[in-house]
């Protein structure tokens, strides 16, 4: 049997990092919040201590605070109107997640462009053509990419 004492110590440090890693988080908050039904939608900069409010600048670790109505609207099967919508998305944790949602949304009929903002957790979707997608269509595509749509901003 061979034991590498120094490396074992390093392992303990690494283990401690693992245990402590997710607990630290630099004050970032990781929880979606649903305001009361009919409540105003806000963007809360949780990690940076930004106050809640419609004008709050999104920061990393943001929790999309949305109303029950917003969530319900993401399941609507009524075709969207207009040239673009902004999707508020949870789970956009890495660059390849952004590529995943790109690919998933580009397969939806009526989607002409996709632009991912990793910092804000939002995706700008261009719409065009005769057949427009419904919020439900976009929600399913986002789900395919292993992400969660919490609001559609028209």
């Amino acid at each position: 049997m061979t034991t590498y004492t120094k490396l074992t110590a390093a392992m303990v440090v690494a283990g401690a990092m693992m245990v402590g890693g997710c607990a630290g988080g630099g004050g970032q908050v990781g929880r979606a919040e649903v305001a009361g039904a009919g409540g105003a939608t806000t963007g809360a900069g949780a990690g940076a201590g930004a106050g809640a409010g419609a004008e709050a600048k999104p920061t990393e670790g943001v929790v999309h605070s949305v109303s029950a109505k917003d969530l319900a609207e993401t399941h609507s099967t009524t075709a969207l109107e207009g040239d673009e919508v902004t999707l508020w998305v949870n789970g956009l944790g890495c660059p390849q997640c952004a590529t995943n949602i790109d690919k998933a949304l580009e397969n939806v009929r009526g989607v002409t462009s996709v632009q991912v903002d990793l910092g804000a957790g939002k995706v700008l979707v261009g719409l065009g053509g005769r057949s427009r997608p419904s919020p439900h269509d976009l929600s399913e595509a986002v789900k395919d990419a292993a992400l969660t749509l919490v609001k559609i901003e028209k």
Partner: peptide, 15 residues
């Protein structure tokens, strides 16, 4: 096969 997913923040996720 991913059988559990909880995206509870713009970055945060558990799977």
């Amino acid at each position: 096969h991913r059988f559990f997913m909880e995206n509870n923040g713009t970055i945060d996720t558990m799977r």
